Simulated assay, not measured.
Amino acid sequence: MAAKMPLNILKMKKMKQEGHPITMITAYDYPTAQLAEEAGVDMLLIGDSLGNVVLGYDSTIPVTIDDIVYHSRAVARGAGSTFIVADLPFMTYHGSIDETLKSVRRLMQEGHAHAIKLEGGAEIADTVKAIVQAGVPVIAHIGLTPQSVHQIGGYRIQGKDEKDAQRLLDDALALEAAGAFGIVLELVTEEAATTISQKLSIPTIGIGAGRGCDGQVLVFHDAVKYTSSYREKRFVKTYADIGDTIRTALQEYVNEVRSGAFPAEQHVFSGDQEALGSLYGAKRKVETQS
């Protein structure tokens, strides 16, 4: 398969202008990144959702910068021709700008990301501006922001009334003015997300934000049901049930080992019988003489 040319932020803005939807999906390891690139996904996100779907936490809050760097590096090795975005995890960008830029540097230099993502609205606009001025592309994330889920009262739909929808629009405009090249809208009403998308010159990427966004993102494990027990989500479409396929395959492996069906003749290696007889025969003769 011929290598594709990765997107850049100018191409993404042009895609918005021309009405070409942008595709994004999370990836946390080398084989997933390879498969996503082969499928033609535009952007890969090493999201702090890895805390929930890979590391076994009940939220994104325990995820560290070391976690994101480790997984981003693996994704970059698997998808060398795809635009890669890495999350700044919880409390890595709320202190001094020097401390924030240290985390950003790690994601870019050690994690080999092309851009970073951080959650928040107008209150982080100055931080976004400083990161952009340092030469790093930034995609912002508003609406349902998992890192602050306890503060906003749980996993609630955002933009349901006029006041809240206006707040989201104000946040989006502030982040655009600060230099963000795109904005993720999570669990936002379709009406609010569509209005925001129309008002901005930069792309919006929706997850549970309806059909009016300039692109869509899903968590990989949701899209293919790569889990033990899957909880259905209204805003997710699942395209395969990999969890069930893996479980069934491993059950068959266990049964075949226990029954002796595996390994079969085609799975073993045989040497030259005369040479083997000479070798092991000689060994047995020496052992008998001793």
Rank of each mutant, 00 (worst) to 15 (best):
D42S: 13
E18F: 13
L45N: 01
A282W: 12
Q266E: 12
D98N: 10
G281H: 02
A39G: 12
A74N: 06
I131F: 00
A177W: 08
D171L: 04
G95H: 08
V53P: 03
G243K: 09
A76D: 10
Q133D: 14
P137S: 07
V75C: 04
Y93P: 00
D244H: 12
G208L: 03
S49R: 06
F90L: 10
A2T: 10
K129Q: 15
T195A: 11
A134C: 04
D58I: 08
G56V: 14
A130Y: 07
K129H: 10
E256N: 08
I68K: 06
H221K: 14
Y30W: 13
A130E: 02
E190L: 02
Y28A: 02
Y226I: 09
R234L: 15
I65P: 04
F269N: 09
Y57I: 13
K237G: 05
L218P: 03
K237A: 12
R106Y: 00
T245A: 14
A115N: 09
V53G: 05
S197G: 00
L107S: 11
K199M: 13
I157T: 14
L175E: 07
G271L: 15
T145S: 04
A165R: 02
D171Y: 04
G95P: 10
R77M: 03
S197E: 06
I22A: 09
L218D: 01
M91W: 10
K11W: 05
P89V: 07
I183K: 10
F269A: 12
